[in-house]
Design a protein around this nucleic acid. Structure first.
Lengths: 154, 154
DNA sequence: GAATTGATCCTTATTTTCTAAGGCAAATCT
DNA sequence: AGATTTGCCTTAGAAAATAAGGATCAATTC
């Protein structure tokens, strides 16, 4: 059900870099017929290797010039703080990622906003407004050295 | 040259969620002819709003079960430490993101590896092997609460 | 005020691509 | 050994992308 050979990996690798490549061209690059490659791709999607496709947008071009990471510590007094926090994070459009981590704090939040003013508002009205948030530490990104690199599949 | 109206935003929003949608269907959803939408999209690409397209792969399905964030502090004794670190990070396939931040440390690294064993190797052979790395703090992700949310364009 | 320019959208026709059907051969299972 | 499955192929019909040409409207120019 979920064997994955070298050809599959090559398909995934190419598709990760160019999700809109024509199946015909993909097949040429792989060295198989378009039908075969199409069947493989269908299987890779069915088996959950490919979750979808998306356009890569330029955040700066869209007025989202500030990237921040926020470490969040919660009050672990009530049992449902974690659930409530997780739920609230889902609905906040500024939050691109949120992970529960093991270590010195509880959650690491990655968010994009227009500027510092917008971040202040987000911090005050969204993050700190949540019940159970005890402490936050903000790290503003000065330079994006490596951004959204492809997964190492090949 | 770079005005962006409501229709453009809708195009970007849909395309961010489904990068492989047929232009015909996209046009239907927008309420314009396929040609018009195609022209708009071409412009959005030319003006740098769309940087490309990519398949979204499932990291766990590909054997990359462990997500880690690493805070890195550098020795700021020699002037080229930053450049060398930045360069080395580019070539490491495990590193998905790397940002220079303002605050308690210098770089925040996001990496994906198979498991803790693989992480130990990565830490020792890649990160700590770099000259100028004074200290690292590792945070292993226990739960991915929100993963790669779309940018808020609409 | 009239004409021109430019932007946005449309329809149509051609080319390209996708998809489904059917068949062949090698590997695997009974 | 025979049957089944798997992976690949070719081919043909359906669907989509692309390019050309033209209409409309707003803003600008003369």
């Amino acid at each position: 059900m979920s064997e994955i050979d070298k050809i599959d990996r090559k398909i995934l690798s190419i598709l990760q870099g160019d999700g809109r490549i024509a199946n015909v061209e993909l097949a040429e690059r792989i060295g198989l017929s378009p039908t075969s490659v199409g069947e493989r791709l269908k299987r890779l999607q069915r088996d959950g290797f490919v979750e979808g496709y998306g356009a890569r947008l330029n955040p700066h071009r869209l007025g989202l010039g500030l990237l921040v990471f926020v470490e969040v510590l919660l009050d672990k007094t009530t049992p449902d703080v974690f659930e409530r926090f997780a739920k609230a994070v889902q609905t906040a459009p500024e939050v691109l990622e949120c992970h529960m981590v093991a270590g010195g704090f509880d959650y690491l939040v990655k968010a994009r906003v227009a500027n510092m003013t917008a971040y202040r508002r987000f911090l005050g009205e969204t993050l700190l407004a949540l019940p159970g948030v005890r402490e936050t530490r903000t790290y503003a990104v000065m330079e994006e050295v490596k951004r959204d690199a492809p997964l190492p599949v090949g």
